[in-house]
């Protein structure tokens, strides 16, 4: 049985459809990379799969409590230390291995530092380490490598491969090559056709 199956899905952002007719399935051990120009609705699609907003049309079949979501905001508290931030999410998601997650993203040396004192790349590494303590099978990742250096991207690639090898799956919106053996889904053909409730053409021309 597949971990995630999406059938004829349409999603909307701000009341306007961005994507329609998207279908794909994701089995254990697989990763799917979403590509497409800015504004086509990659983030909206990921938020819909994560259950943060409802689909406009179509079906998403997914097990309960299967998704670990990571987006542009890392959900860190500046006043808490690196270890405290991770320990909190580990407790909320049901007890993952905090020390192991810090080792995986090379955060052990920073464990007592307040998250407010981390650099952007270090914050992102902490945000990604949270995926390990969440212990969820399906990772839904929105541009996970933003502000990471080359070594950290490689480290994250290893972490992803380990997750897939353990029977996990990942749905990733990214523009860089993570060195994964993954299918790529180009969303450009699924761009929603302007319907009758679309703004008038003059509006589009003015902002083109």
């Amino acid at each position: 049985m597949s971990l995630l199956s999406v059938h004829d899905l349409s999603v909307a952002r701000g009341g306007l459809r961005t994507l329609s007719g998207v279908s794909f399935t994701l089995d254990a051990g697989q990763a799917l990379i979403l590509r497409g120009p800015n504004g086509i609705g990659k983030t909206t699609l990921l938020r819909t799969v994560a259950g943060l907003q409802g689909p406009v049309a179509g079906r998403i079949k997914i097990a309960d409590d299967a998704v670990a979501y990571a987006a542009h905001a890392d959900g860190l508290k500046g006043a808490l230390s690196v270890a405290e931030n991770l320990a909190f999410w580990a407790q909320v998601f049901g007890g993952g291995d905090v020390a192991g997650a810090m080792a995986a993203m090379d955060l052990a040396a920073l464990s007592d530092r307040p998250a407010a004192a981390l650099s952007a790349g270090q914050k992102r590494r902490l945000g990604l380490a949270r995926l390990l303590v969440a212990r969820r099978p399906l990772w839904v990742l929105d541009e996970p490598t933003v502000s990471l250096d080359a070594a950290s991207v490689a480290r994250f690639g290893n972490m992803l491969r380990g997750h897939l090898a353990q029977g996990g799956a990942a749905l990733i919106a990214t523009h860089i090559d993570l060195g994964l053996d993954a299918r790529v889904l180009d969303l450009t053909p699924f761009r929603a056709k302007p319907s009758t409730d679309a703004p008038p053409a003059g509006f589009n021309e003015a902002f083109a």
Partner: peptide, 14 residues
């Protein structure tokens, strides 16, 4: 909401 924790809480088992 600002730092994204609310999104993560909404997807958590809580």
């Amino acid at each position: 909401h600002e730092d994204g924790s609310l999104d993560l809480l909404a997807t958590s088992p809580l």
